[in-house]
Design a binder for these strands. Structure first.
Ligand SMILES: [Zn+2]
Ligand SMILES: [Zn+2]
Ligand SMILES: [Zn+2]
Ligand SMILES: [Zn+2]
Lengths: 144, 144
DNA sequence: TTTTAATTGATACTTACTATCAATACAACG
DNA sequence: CGTTGTATTGATAGTAAGTATCAATTAAAA
């Protein structure tokens, strides 16, 4: 019986695969991300790791975004958020009340985009989509 | 024969409808936006209108976004851009090379979103979608 | 014309980063 | 192992995109 690799190792391996050094600081940032289960801000991580310089936190987050270990997205007002990336290709739903971020897969969106060659001139090189919601918890909570 | 109202008037009327005062500064910001035909940054407008305070430029842009006169969106790297809103409900294509912004209408996306109730828990209250492209001009230009 | 609340703008502050660069440490090599 | 060299770090300062403050001004209703 093979044990599934821990997410931590996945992230470290992704950095190694990119030819980067595995430093104590990078391990700490990865560990801090794994400790959370929802979305977070760069500042969340920086405050959780006083021993790691802010610049290093931001640099590491950028590396992890490039390595597809985490996603960077934005609240409706533009506030940047990060979220662990668990599924191959996906989009995000963001609760406008509590900020909870969920991933969802939907190939329909991709198919629609491919069919938009009539409406969109040029070559499509990427897209971003975020769905803003009020999550079940917030809908059911009294004060809202 | 009725003349179509100028876009300028539309914008001013939208502000009036919101119960706001029509000031010289707001007229200047609206006029500066009309003078451009593509996307622009807040800083573009502020630099074009040295006689209008920066805070007022930002305040007015926010009012115009709320009044649906302009749209606020973001380049892939997150840089915020503004774009005149000409079509009722729409999404945006952004050229990653030259930054040109176009609006496009596509009801398929909206239909897809409504059908995502299975994948997305909670009540959908909004969404954002941007398609990143290389526009015809940039594809045809030699140095790219 | 008077009045008054909305608006303005100079300034300072905030957030989310990025650039610099000397000091440090990973990891490859012998 | 120890040496080495480059990647990485972090303190500091700077940038981009705003927001908060508040006294002075002004649109527009009365
Ligand atoms: Zn994600
Ligand atoms: Zn919620
Ligand atoms: Zn638009
Ligand atoms: Zn282009």
């Amino acid at each position: 019986m093979t044990t599934a690799p821990t997410p931590q190792l996945d992230a470290i391996i992704a950095l190694e695969d990119a030819g980067l050094r595995i430093t104590g600081q990078r391990r700490q940032v990865v560990a801090a991300i794994e400790r959370r289960d929802g979305g977070f801000t760069a500042e969340d991580i920086a405050m959780e790791l006083p021993g790691v310089g802010r610049a290093t936190v931001y640099r590491t987050l950028k590396l992890l975004v490039t390595a597809d270990v985490i996603c960077k997205l934005a609240l409706p007002d533009g506030t940047p958020m990060y979220s662990p990336s668990r599924v191959e290709h996906h989009h995000h739903s963001v609760c406008t009340t509590c900020g909870a971020i969920e991933e969802f897969r939907d190939t329909t969106v991709e198919r629609v985009l491919r069919s938009l060659t009539r409406e969109i001139e040029g070559e499509i090189v990427g897209h971003r989509m975020e769905v803003f919601i009020r999550c079940q918890t917030c809908l059911e909570s009294p004060g809202a």
